[in-house]
Structures are given as C-alpha cells and as structure tokens.
Amino acid sequence: MSYVIAYAATAVVFFGLDYVWLSRVSTGFYKSRMDHLLMDQPNLLAAGLFYLVYVAGIVYFAVAPALGNGSAMSALVAGAILGLIAYGTYDMTNLATVKNWSVAVTVVDMAWGTVLTGVSAWAGYLVATRFSVVPS
C-alpha cells in the first residue's frame, strides 16, 4: 500500500508542478525558442503515457529506496539525479540531432527536470511515510 500512496502522491505533485511550469511560467520561453517545432495541440495520449511511466520510474528509483532507508534526503537526491539523467538524455539528444535546437532550452529544461523530479520524489516519500506503514 505504501507504494500505491507514493505513486499517487508523486504523480499529483509532478503533474501539478509541470502543469504550472508548462502553462504559466515557461510558455513564452519555450514558444520563443521552439515555436517552429511545436504542434498546435499536444498529443495528450503520448503525454499521459510519459507521465504514467515516468512517475513509476521516480517511485522505483527514488521513492522506494528512500522508503527502505528512511531518508527524505535520499528521495530528493535520487529523484534529482534521475531527473537530470532523463531530461538530459532528451535535451542533449535533441541538441545533437535537431537543427537549430536551443542551448538555452537544453539548460533550462535539464534544470527543470532535475528540480521537478527531485521535489516530486521527496513529496512522494513524505506523503507515503505519513499515510502508510512503511516497510523496514
């Protein structure tokens, strides 16, 4: 049950923060640098599948180990490392293969992925430890 709670909490935080980031904070930044690449409407099925799988990865690689060792800090750090690796893979691959891919987008997006994933893992850990029996 701890992992179900961790998944749900991590997902709510991840979706919520990413929604605010993509719809309110960074819209102009990405649009000014990538407008020629963006679709009029995002593919919500693809986005939804990404979110479901990525949150499972956050729980597996960051939250679950933290639940095992009892450390919120390890959830935060492991989540941040996972975010840097995942977002870095996407952005550095695009920088290497997509014409006119923005270096600024790469840097900002990697930083965002690091923070977003770390904070989401940390929150998932905190909620799971608060509302469930954590395995020892």
Rank of each mutant, 00 (worst) to 15 (best):
M1Q: 13
M1Y: 12
Y3D: 08
V4K: 05
I5V: 10
A8N: 04
A8W: 02
A9N: 06
T10S: 13
T10P: 02
A11N: 05
A11I: 06
V13H: 02
F14T: 00
F14G: 02
G16I: 02
L17K: 05
L17I: 14
Y19K: 11
V20R: 01
V20H: 00
W21L: 07
L22Q: 05
L22D: 02
L22W: 01
S23W: 11
S23D: 09
F29H: 06
Y30Q: 06
K31G: 04
S32Y: 08
R33C: 07
L37E: 13
L38Q: 15
M39S: 13
A46S: 14
A47I: 09
A47H: 08
G48T: 05
G48C: 07
L49F: 14
L49Y: 11
F50V: 13
F50I: 09
Y51E: 02
Y54M: 07
Y54H: 11
G57E: 06
I58S: 07
V59C: 01
A62N: 01
A62L: 04
A64L: 10
P65R: 06
A66S: 07
G68A: 08
N69S: 11
G70A: 03
S71M: 06
A72I: 10
S74D: 15
A75L: 07
A75I: 03
V77I: 15
A78Q: 13
A80F: 09
I81P: 05
I81F: 12
L82K: 06
L82V: 09
L84R: 03
I85W: 09
A86I: 10
A86H: 12
A86Q: 08
A86F: 15
Y87P: 01
G88S: 06
G88H: 11
Y90A: 10
D91Y: 00
D91Q: 10
D91I: 06
M92I: 15
T93L: 13
N94L: 14
A96I: 01
V98R: 11
K99Q: 11
K99N: 14
S102R: 03
V105H: 09
T106M: 15
V107K: 06
A111R: 00
A111F: 14
W112M: 07
G113M: 12
T114I: 11
G118W: 07
V119R: 03
V119D: 00
A121S: 12
W122G: 03
A123T: 01
A123R: 05
A123L: 04
A123M: 06
L126E: 11
A128G: 01
A128H: 04
R130P: 00
S132L: 00
V133A: 14
V133Y: 00
V133F: 11
V134K: 01
V134Q: 00
V134Y: 02
S136R: 06
